[in-house]
Design a protein around this nucleic acid. Structure first.
Lengths: 358, 358
DNA sequence: TAAATGCTCCAAACCGCTTTGGATGCCTGA
DNA sequence: TCAGGCATCCAAAGCGGTTTGGAGCATTTA
């Protein structure tokens, strides 16, 4: 049962293993892959020999023969100027990777300049190196979904494309609802000047979050002040800088909705530098992707930030599971999964302060 | 010259392309791969046809024939309990990925539970899915280096293993020197109670950083107070928690050396909560991996933290370049690259405050 | 002029595995 | 006793490329 790992020895091929056993490659292959045409006795013998010699099938050969690559591709876009590496990829990929590993799939990652993205997907298909693809960070007017549908390779989108009019598989968090609820909560606390520090505005999630905020404001008869809505890459510095500028205006916001914990950390820095207190003078609600190394949890205490929370790692697991299921079942009926975010109370929110100007 | 991308069509094989051209597969293959046995005229014709039909060679088939996988493997350990995903991986991988893409290599990533790591490397080799491996996060007593040397697959270590007595390829930052210099700088400012918030203590980089600190202290005739040295996973919360506890002791440190910007953000939070001022009451020097989304730079201004800075993305590029070079040259003479960190002045350091107790 | 040389191109083997279509031997039932 | 059925196993043909060892032909060289 326990495999005897042999290091430093020449690798063994199926043919060699078959010779050792005095069997044909056919039989050995079938024995190892659990086909019924081989007797239980020989199967045991073959399995034992494979373990002893540390035989492992060559994936390239197998995949050439079966037509299955046993690998999933992820394309990670690289905006060349910023050299920006989105931190949520890390956790998403960690989640997906768990699922792949459990099912014997490899994970192929391509770092691709933005402008070569479509070509990269084409290549995945034509080079035959993957069985399916995860599409990250869909944007408004994203052509990838249409393209992949045409190419006919299984794929799952992490997020949605609002303007895609064809069916496709996706796993998404209910961004609009989450930010609607968060806004409602701030309104309930008496806040009226509410700023939004969002991700890049052509990102689908950013569009939905903004829509959620507007919807909530309008639901209370408040005209959204678009001058308080900001879109940018979600870096610590951008959060800091936006906060600094906003706190210096005439009638500064009393509350901030922030799309990620990272810019929120910058925002908090700006607030403190302005001599204000988070949670008392200024409220913050973040969206918390539950990143493992930037946890919003505070070891049993109340979280630092009030947050809409949804684990992006879990989204990775869900997307990977969905994709593998599509590939292995061959059933192409479009699947979707909408995850709900929890609104979790932390120390960064409080009632709107009384201003000299009410 | 411009390839006409054909979507939705059946993929074309080399054999089919050859038939279309009235040539043999041999000639087509050679034409496309630039062998001299084919005339310039036919090469042009073949190339043009390949472009028109959007032909791309199947990587699995090619790699089976050539014995080269055209892929590099990265194993990312996953400590199952913590579900920790080290953020520096992201940037390192981004750097390496650029180099792979430029050279036509794929990047294979395996998320592997800590205890199955060695098996994962074995598998990489025996499954034949990669030509080389990058080893991440070497630890004290790390068996991977010995194992990979035995297995005989090209690899480059990001970091070093202090106790490895055999040659191997590595790319590392001079951790000891960086922390020595940082400590010297704090000593010059008059600090004597210096704390270290380090990474997990069996990590090689953590060992070297600690050694650098001790060496500097001893160089000035100061006996290191080991009760001020902490090792833990580099999360925001751990930085916060360690800071909180240390600031509450009898004779708290006046300066902190922190192994990453992430726990430093937590530490800063703790310092502010204690009503103290970073840079005046308490000094901080971090090591800055130059993560793209957590930049220490402040848009033209002085950086937030004084830091020893070395781009981990750049390390990724260097390691990938080294590995590809080893693979393609076949030259196994061990290579090493030691990167120097810059000591960059920010707003988090100042002279040691005068205590009532001098 | 005959042999040697180059230049192009091709047939076929091969990479390591899967899978189709038997082949073999033994057992059953009529 | 013999056809038919079943359980095992195998030879050989792929999968889609690369590569070895020529073949065919025009051009030089002796």
């Amino acid at each position: 049962m326990v495999p005897m790992i042999q290091t430093g020895l020449e690798l063994m091929t199926l043919k060699e293993l078959a010779e050792h056993l005095g069997l044909s490659p056919t039989t050995v292959s079938r024995a190892l892959n659990g086909f019924p045409e081989v007797s239980e006795a020989t199967r045991k013998k073959v399995q034992a020999a494979a373990d002893t010699y540390g035989y492992r099938p060559n994936y390239r050969a197998r995949s050439l023969a079966t037509g299955r690559a046993m690998a999933i591709g992820h394309v990670i876009p690289m905006a060349s100027e910023h050299e920006m590496m989105n931190p949520v990829f890390t956790d998403f990929i960690a989640g997906a990777g768990e699922v792949y590993a459990k099912n014997g799939y490899d994970m192929l990652i391509s770092i691709v300049p933005d402008q070569h993205q479509e070509q990269a997907y084409q290549d995945f298909k034509s080079k035959g190196s993957v069985d399916g693809i995860i599409v990250h960070a869909p944007r408004a007017g994203d052509r990838r979904i249409h393209m992949l549908n045409e190419v006919g390779i299984p794929f799952v989108v992490h997020g949605r494309a609002s303007d895609a009019h064809e069916p496709y598989n996706w796993v998404d968090m209910d961004n609009k609802r989450a930010f609607h609820r968060a806004t409602d909560f701030l309104l309930d606390l008496g806040h009226r000047r509410i700023a939004l520090i969002n991700g890049l505005e052509d990102m689908d999630f950013a569009i939905r979050r903004r829509a959620g905020v507007k919807e909530a404001l309008e639901g209370r008869g408040i005209t959204p002040d678009e001058s308080l809505f900001f879109s940018n890459e979600m870096t610590e510095f951008n959060g800091y800088e936006t906060g600094r500028r906003l706190l210096a205006i005439q009638d500064p916001p009393t509350a901030f909705l922030v799309s990620s914990i990272i810019p929120a950390i910058g925002l908090r820095r700006a607030i403190r530098e302005a001599g204000l207190d988070v949670g008392r003078d200024v409220s913050i609600i973040i969206h918390d992707d539950d990143l493992s190394y930037l946890s919003n949890a505070s070891g049993g205490q109340e979280p630092q930030f009030t947050a809409t929370k949804s684990s992006v790692r879990d989204a990775g697991r869900k997307a990977a599971t969905m994709l593998l299921d599509i590939i292995e079942s061959g059933d192409t009926a479009p699947r979707t999964a909408l995850m709900e975010a929890n609104l979790i109370l932390g120390r960064s929110t409080g009632p709107a302060p009384n201003r000299t100007t009410t």
